[in-house]
Each structure stands twice: as structure tokens, then as C-alpha cells.
Design a protein around this nucleic acid. Structure first.
Length: 176
DNA sequence: TAGGCCATCTGGTCCT
DNA sequence: AGGACCAGATGGCCTA
């Protein structure tokens, strides 16, 4: 804070400068208080926004939880578990799809012209309604480069998703 | 009681 | 300038 010039206002009529100083001091205090309340109100607003933002994030996380299978059903995954589980779940589903495409001949006259599943197609609807323990696939295709056991080709093995929280890490494979 | 999880606050940084 | 995003700090709650 800049101070008054030394010696200024000291003289025969020192009363006026003193009054001026006092007024200036009061004004400064007022502006500082104003600044403080302004800062405070901005902070409060920012806190509010931040709280809101986190609520939205949590709502999205809840939505994600709601589409993930949990065992038992009332288990609530933590945030980090939800993210890891989702990653692994998506990975498992795509592996399932990959194996399905390898093993099952595409229906209809256009064999070999398997189109990627589009929204609303059979594959898409299968995916969207699949239960995690549903499909048990062919036994001849090469296994996925996954940390899952390769006893057979069934993937995901029935109720394998139960252990998805703790799958070992592998390159390009599910997160832990 | 220690440790894990969570919500909230806060200051800094980046973007519009 | 103001909002969004981020990471660190803090305190409360719960469980082993």
C-alpha cells in the first residue's frame, strides 16, 4: 500500500490535511470492504457452479452405473470402480462381438459381406439388450488377447464379469 | 482407530 | 471479465 508523502500537510493549519487523510482512509476502507464482498460473492458463485458441475458429473456416473451389471444387484460401485468396470465391460462386449462375427455365418444371401452393426440392427439390438452372462460362443476361434483364461473360447465366460473389477492388466486389455 | 470414499471449498489456469 | 475445468486441502461418514 502506498503511504502518504512524508511531511506533507504538516504546518500551521495541520487540521485540514489530517481530516483529508482520515476521509481518504475511510474511503479506502470502504473500497476494500467492497472489493472483499465482491470477491466473496464471486467465490460463492464459483463454489455454486463447481458444486453443480460435480453433481452433473455424479449424475452421469450414476447413469453409467445403472447400465453396468453388478453382483449382487444392490452393490454400488465406487467412482473409480465404475470407470474401470465400464472400460472392461465395453472391452468384453466388443470381444464378444468380434468372436460372434468370426464364428457365426452372417444370415441372408450376402455371406461374407458382414456389415458392421448399425443402430437398430440385429447386432445392435443384441448388444443393447444383452445380459453380461448371456452369450457362449464358438469353441474354435482364437481366444481374445485378454487376461481371461483360455480354457475355452466362450467369452465372456458365464458370469465372468463378476470379477471385472480385478482383472489383471495387459496391453490393450481391460484396465484394473 | 486407520484407511477409504466422498462432498465441498479454494485458487490457479485455460478458454470464450 | 466470467465461466469451465482441474487438482489440492479439508472434514465427515463408514467399515474392518
Amino acid at each position: 500500500m502506498p503511504s502518504e508523502a512524508p511531511g506533507s500537510g504538516e504546518g500551521a493549519d495541520a487540521g485540514a490535511p489530517r481530516e483529508r487523510r482520515r476521509r481518504r482512509g475511510r474511503a479506502r476502507a470502504r473500497t476494500e470492504a467492497l472489493l472483499h464482498t465482491l470477491k466473496r460473492s464471486r467465490r460463492v458463485k464459483a463454489n455454486d457452479r463447481e458444486r453443480n458441475r460435480m453433481h452433473h458429473l455424479n449424475a452421469a456416473l450414476d447413469e453409467l452405473r445403472s447400465v453396468l451389471p453388478t453382483f449382487p444387484d444392490d452393490t454400488k460401485l465406487t467412482k473409480i470402480e465404475t470407470l474401470r468396470f465400464a472400460y472392461n465391460y465395453i472391452w468384453a462386449l466388443s470381444e464378444t462381438l468380434r468372436l460372434a462375427e468370426q464364428c457365426l455365418p452372417p444370415p441372408g444371401p450376402f455371406r461374407g459381406a458382414a456389415a458392421p452393426p448399425s443402430p437398430g440392427s440385429d447386432a445392435g439390438s443384441w448388444l443393447s439388450s444383452a445380459s453380461p452372462s448371456a452369450p457362449s460362443l464358438c469353441a474354435s476361434a482364437s481366444g481374445p488377447s485378454s487376461p481371461a483364461t483360455s480354457e475355452d473360447c466362450a467369452y465372456p465366460p458365464a458370469d465372468s464379469l463378476r470379477g471385472f473389477r480385478g482383472l489383471p492388466a495387459a496391453p490393450g486389455a481391460p484396465l484394473r
